[in-house]
Design a protein around this nucleic acid. Structure first.
Length: 163
DNA sequence: TTCGGAACTG
DNA sequence: CAGTTCCGAA
C-alpha cells in the first residue's frame, strides 16, 4: 500500500504549464482507476474536470490565474460533455453546478467569489479527502508516467524534484 | 448567478 | 455514496 508524492519542475511536465512549482501525487492502478481508463469505478466529476483541464485550454474549461483555479468558459457545453460521459442526456449547468457545490463541504472545491463561473480546487485536501491514510514514498519516476494529480507545494515540502 | 435543502437514484 | 433532479431564496 503505497502512494508516491513528488515535487516536479514545471518545465518538464505537461500538467505544469500554468504554474511555478508543483507537487504531484501518483496513485497506483489498484488504488485508483483513472477516469480515462476502462476501469470499474464510476467516473467522478472532479476526475472529469481534471481530465479536460489536462487537455489544455481552448475548450469549455480552462485554468485560471491562481493556483488550482479554473474558469468554465462555456457552462452548457461542459454540462453536455459531462452528461455524455455519465449517460445523462438532460444534464445542464444548473445541475452540474449543484454537484460542484456539494464539493464545498467535501473540501474538494470552493468558489472564487466575484469571478463568474470560477472555482478553485483544494488540491492538498483533495488527496487527504479521497485517499485517507496515504503514505508518501520518494522514488524517482519519469514525468511521462504521471497520469496524476497535482497538489500545491507545501512549505517544508517533501518529494523530489524531477528534471 | 449562486446557494443549499430535500427527495431520489444506481 | 456521488451525484441528479427540482426549486425557492438571496
Amino acid at each position: 500500500r503505497q502512494v508516491c508524492a513528488y515535487t516536479l519542475n514545471p518545465h518538464t511536465s505537461r500538467f505544469a504549464h500554468n504554474f511555478r512549482v508543483l507537487s504531484a501525487v501518483l496513485f497506483p492502478d489498484w488504488a485508483y482507476k483513472p477516469a480515462w481508463s476502462p476501469g470499474s469505478r464510476q467516473v467522478q466529476l472532479w476526475h472529469f474536470l481534471l481530465e479536460l483541464l489536462g487537455r489544455g485550454s481552448g475548450g469549455a474549461i480552462g485554468w485560471g490565474s491562481e493556483w488550482g483555479e479554473f474558469v468554465i468558459r462555456d457552462p452548457e457545453t461542459l454540462a453536455r460533455l459531462w452528461g455524455e460521459r455519465k449517460g445523462k442526456p438532460h444534464m445542464n449547468y444548473d445541475k452540474l453546478s449543484r454537484a460542484l457545490r456539494y464539493y464545498y463541504n467535501k473540501r474538494i472545491l470552493h468558489k472564487t467569489k466575484g469571478k463568474r463561473f470560477t472555482y478553485k480546487f483544494n488540491f492538498s485536501k483533495l488527496v487527504l479527502v479521497n485517499y485517507p491514510g496515504f503514505q508518501t514514498c520518494h522514488q524517482v519516476i519519469s514525468p511521462s508516467a504521471l497520469h496524476v494529480f497535482l497538489s500545491p507545494c507545501v512549505s517544508g515540502s517533501q518529494g523530489r524534484t524531477i528534471r
